[in-house]
Nucleic acid binder design. Structure first.
Lengths: 122, 122
DNA sequence: GCCATAAGTTACTTTTTAGTTACCGCAATT
DNA sequence: AATTGCGGTAACTAAAAAGTAACTTATGGC
């Protein structure tokens, strides 16, 4: 349950970033939530290969770190929707740049556009 | 030895990025190589907590993926220097943006500047 | 002849991460 | 009255990642 993080006594920004987002599933979760809120079951469906336990754990940590919002509706059967907070949204340009970079360097993924559409600035 | 990657039959750019760079140590290695070539022993020293075995594995994979160059000098005792390829260098702006984001959102790391200095464009 | 040195490799053990199965709550449907 | 659906949780097991300790290689210095 307790996360094991890299030592970071000098508060290195790179290490901090890795500790907070550098996992297998977290970037993908933020990516899937980029444009809309999504239900738990949908995330489970989209993220082929993840177990509900691991998904739950990752969502809890993202919530704890202020990236996502968990909204529970008082219905039966239960409905829970996850969405990005402002902090979560502010991370999207980073993910976008990562995807852009990947498309540039990997012809085999170039046909697929990055799903992240950044909201227009004002 | 064989890496275990996420399924990605639709060639999703996000998944691809995670598969190629989304690990504990790889971003940090690229970060440490940002401005100069570095010897194996130095990397081991800088990366507190990593074992030589894991460092070797990560370096091999980064080399395999074209991010870094391994230069072996014919000396005894041996000297091996690692440096970024063009592909590796092209990933630096992504890491830079990650660090910038982290500094923005985490006051406790704000005093420390990101070590990555991007080469001037022409 | 023996030791030190740098960058590994190998075989083995430990730790960490992830998956599995069973179960819960509760209203609506059958 | 039993069943379905969703979003979990708990206890347990399996798999993956990482750590450890010993060994290697070849030369120069003592």
């Amino acid at each position: 349950m307790a996360r094991k993080l890299l030592e970071n006594k000098d508060s290195c920004s790179m290490l901090h970033t890795i500790n907070i987002i550098g996992t297998k599933w977290k970037p993908l979760i933020l990516y899937l939530l980029a444009n809309k809120s999504v239900r738990f079951g949908k995330l489970l469906f989209f993220m082929e290969g993840v177990s509900r336990k691991v998904l739950t754990d990752q969502l809890r940590e993202l919530e704890e770190d202020g990236f996502i919002l968990r909204q529970k509706f008082g219905e039966v059967p239960p409905r829970v929707e996850y969405s990005l907070t402002d902090k979560g949204k502010s991370f999207l340009p980073v993910l976008k740049q990562m995807c852009d970079w990947t498309i540039q360097w990997n012809p085999e993924v170039s046909f697929m556009d990055c799903k992240i559409v950044l909201p227009a600035e004002d």
